[in-house]
Design a protein around this nucleic acid. Sequence first.
DNA 1: CCCTGATTCGC
DNA 2: GCGAATCAGG
Length: 167
Amino acid sequence: MSWTDERVDLLKKLWADGLSASQIATKLGEVTRNAVIGKVHRLGLAGRATTSRIRTARPRSNIALFPTRSPQVQYRTFGNTALKISPEPEQRKPATIIPLTLPDLEPAPEGLIRLVDLKENMCHWPVGDPMEDGFHFCGRRKNSGSPYCEHHSAIAYNPVAKKRRAM
DNA sequence: CCCTGATTCGC
DNA sequence: GCGAATCAGG
């Protein structure tokens, strides 16, 4: 089914009346709401979005990043290739493995660690109710790669604990 | 998870 | 031009 004049007119009317795309699609029949939206857009009626739209511009092609035709990068070399210096492979350093100090679990930091007191190497685990006095952060030495200390990392990244909403 | 519109892109 | 796929948001 194609977009006849009558169907387009009806589309315009219903869209102007504030009907949702899916409702219009149902009324028209033989089309999906996607088709309706697409048509609305093409007609320049692109209108009332409940959401940002410009803010939320779809990132350019997640699917086009894996096209049927591969992009095939071109490595161009200028001049006499025989004189060309071999490109430095520049080996990646194999990500320095962190020593990962497991001990020292309990030396609680002095005083209450408030947000302003939090340092980058401190555990960001919140303790208490943010609306209540005495709310603070764990503040113990945190694991690298995690905002939390050893103890709280184990909790935060434990799926069971999460599922049961345990803390 | 249901819905909404917005956007991109292969056809 | 069309609309499915996919996105972000309510």
